[in-house]
Each structure stands twice: as C-alpha cells, then as structure tokens.
C-alpha cells in the first residue's frame, strides 16, 4: 500500500518535472538554445502567486501564469533575440546571466528569508489504507490536462505543425512562409506559462519560496529533458515522470534516501552512456 502511495507521489512530482522539462525541450528544439533561466521563471511565478494571494487564490494562479508568459516573451526579445546567429556559448552565458538577474531581483524585492505561500489547505483523500494528499491529485490532473492539450496543439494546430517544421529544418520552414521569430516567441510563452503552472503545483505541495526556489527543480527538469531526449516533447514527459518516480522511491527507503539526488544524476549518466540522444531522442539524419 505504501508502494502505491509512493508511486502516486512520484507520478505527481514527475508531472511537475515534466511540465518544466517541456519548456526546456521545446525551446531547445525550436530556438536551438538551452534556456538556463527557465527554472527561475518558476520562482517568479511563485512570488507572483504570493503577491496576489491576498486578493484571491484563483486570481493569484491566473496572474502567475499570465505574468510568466509575458516574462518569457520579454526575456526572449531582450536577451536572446539580439543573439540569434551568435555562438551557442554566448547564448548560454546570457541565459545564466538572466538566471542570476531574476534571482537577484527577487532577493532585492522579497529578501532572502523563505516566504510562506499557502494557496489552499487541501487535506488528504483517505481510501481505506491509502491516503493521498489532494495537492498530489490536483498536480496529477493538471499534468494530464497540460500534456494532452499540448500534444493535441502540436499535432493538429497550424502553429503546432509550424513548430515541428521549424525544429526540424529552420530554413526550409522559412521557405514555407513560416515566421521563425513568431514561432520562437510563442514557444517561450508556452514554456514559461507551463513553468508557472509547475510552480503553482509545487507550492501546493511545499508552500515555501525563496529567491533560489527555481534552481533545483530547474536542474532536475533539465535532467529529465535530457534523459527523455532533448528536443522531444514526449521525451520530456517520459523523462520527467521517470525522474519523479525514482526520486520518490529513493526517498521512501531510509537507507537510500540521502543518496536520492546522486542516484537521479547517475541515471542521467547511465542513460546517456547507453543512448546518447536520450530515451526518445532522435539522431538527426543528414541525407543529401
């Protein structure tokens, strides 16, 4: 019974990682860059919830998503767009710079002390021997909805198809009349909105926030994206869920628990050794 509870918790945590990993993987696939400021968008989303929580919890969640969506667009326009065509290293360093900028701004505005962000007191669902926190269930439901909607959007919408085309061959996509800059902007907007949602779900489970709140989930989700195959949307989902389950299983065994993070990164190393492109990553074929 404990195992089932752990598994459900793992799925839920995995859902959070997956939502964040989707942002990494989509941006990588389409803009061909690693947005290391992505984790900090979660933190900004968390503080946005804090600011609006006094007014109304639902409004706080909505504002958090909207604010992060706009933040994603602004970051891309101000920091990354001028570097289009520059060396990947310059873009990477800029992304790290944006990350520190966001953390420092949060430090100036909110201070270093943890803030409590209690969106709602949800309690637990008791099913005989199994008891699961409602926050876990909400996270799971949110994850399923997000993944379904995103998959349908990519598969069937015109913009979604354009995203696939751009990620596969940017120049060929331009020749089809696809505005690359617009697609990149939309990608950042979607990724950042998902990061905000992931932040809200995290806060439902653990309601404290600090300026470095996004760093660890950011790195874990990036790991998840790489495990699943960076650039692949189903890969981010698989990688996130896998990492979440592993983390919860490890933490459930007292002897292994202290080594949880080490084990997670060890899995990354092993998977990359066996399959360098990640579980669902594809090797680009160059057919001339």
């Amino acid at each position: 019974m404990d195992f089932i509870v752990t598994l459900v918790n793992g799925l839920s945590l995995g859902g959070i990682y997956a939502m964040i990993a989707l942002g990494y993987t989509m941006v990588y696939g389409i803009a061909k860059m690693l947005n290391f400021a992505h984790g900090d968008v979660i933190m900004v989303g968390g503080y946005t919830v804090l600011v609006f929580l006094a007014v109304n919890p639902v409004l706080a969640i909505v504002m958090s998503v909207i604010f992060c969506l706009l933040l994603g667009i602004v970051i891309e326009k101000v920091a990354y767009k001028p570097l289009r065509g520059a060396s990947p290293l310059a873009v990477l360093i800029t992304a790290i710079g944006v990350s520190y900028l966001l953390q420092s701004l949060a430090l100036i505005i909110f201070g270093a002390a943890p803030e409590f962000v209690i969106i709602a007191n949800l309690g637990t669902l008791d099913l005989g021997p199994i008891s699961i926190k409602y926050s876990t269930i909400i996270t799971l439901v949110a994850t399923v909805i997000v993944m379904t909607v995103l998959s349908l959007f990519v598969k069937y919408s015109k913009i979604g198809r354009a995203m696939v085309a751009v990620s596969e061959d940017r120049d060929a996509a331009r020749l089809m009349g696809i505005n690359i800059n617009m697609i990149i902007t939309i990608t950042f907007a979607i990724g950042s909105a998902l990061a905000a949602l992931a932040g809200v779900c995290s806060l439902l489970n653990v309601p404290t926030i600090t300026p470095t709140y996004g760093a660890m989930p950011g790195i874990k989700a990036f790991t998840a994206a790489v495990i699943g195959g960076i650039g692949s949307i189903p890969g981010a989902m698989v990688g996130g869920i896998l990492l979440g389950i592993v983390e919860c299983l490890c933490k459930a065994v007292p002897e292994i628990a202290p080594y949880t993070i080490a084990i997670e990164f060890a899995i990354l190393i092993v998977i990359l050794l066996v399959k360098p492109t990640g579980i669902l990553g594809k090797k680009r074929r160059e057919k001339v």
Partner: peptide
C-alpha cells in the same frame, strides 16, 4: 516565389 531547396529539405518527421 516558392523554392525547392538543394537537397530537397522535406520535413522528414512529418
């Protein structure tokens, strides 16, 4: 103006 690029450049995964 439409183009057939060198090397075809069709979208392989579509």
């Amino acid at each position: 103006i439409a183009q057939v690029p060198e090397g075809r450049r069709i979208f392989q995964e579509l």
